[in-house]
Design a binder for these strands. Sequence first.
DNA 1: CCGGATGTTCACCT
DNA 2: GAGGTGAACATCCG
Length: 261
Amino acid sequence: MPEMLEVEVYRRAAAASLGRPIVAVDAPDAWFLKGGATADQVVDALVGRRFVADRRRGKLLLLDTSDDGPTLGLRFGMTGVLELDGVDAIDQLQYASHRKDPAWERFVVHFDGGTALRLRDPRRLGGVELDPDEERLGPDAADVGRAELGRIVAGSEAPLKARLMDQARLAGLGNLLTDELLWRAGLDPARPASSLSPAEVRRLHQHLGTTLEVLGERGGSHTGDLQDARRRGGACPRDGALLDRRTIGGRTTYSCPRHQR
DNA sequence: CCGGATGTTCACCT
DNA sequence: GAGGTGAACATCCG
């Protein structure tokens, strides 16, 4: 999916739908419904209500509903796109088709007046859930404090990158953001998480903030300085060294053997 | 044609 | 228990 930066864009787009009466819901794909709810249950829970608040935790978009209704949780997988009023919130998502095949609409909320919020996901990796367990996610990466980040990395011998991408420990970072962050911070993604010194934790925390800020302004997780070099034979944009390509935490990982230590 | 791609979950290993 | 691997989902791109 979209990583947290993209979901943040989706959240702001969805905010424009707050207050509109929900008159119908399409949930044509039972597989897309998570948490055991049936399509009928989801429809019944939403129709007649309105979204009253938009929130995000990590890569999970949360829309609270009126009249003590449930919270709608939306996940976007790798190719999920949110569309409101016929306009894609993001139209430059990589690895996602720009086509608008109606068969890919996995979930649609229709509002009074004919507008709609549509979740289109070609690969079906996302999902929709009523009252998702938000506590299964760690603190959002945009909010985590330095001391808390220190505790998160201190608690595991797993590779640093794997720990940072563990959504139960820290919510929001995906493959691209994590590679960019560690490249900026000059830290080897394969190092045991608990091996970081206090100074390195401080550096990691500072670069987490700037990485999210800079890439957020540029427009997404794919706008990092490392992005163009994330290919076989790519060279480090900082010092020209041939980048390492490894699998860490189950994901293809690019890092600079010279300045990431 | 084949391998991989911003993700999550699960079964199955070590 | 911790951590890793591969599969599944389905489409696009090089």
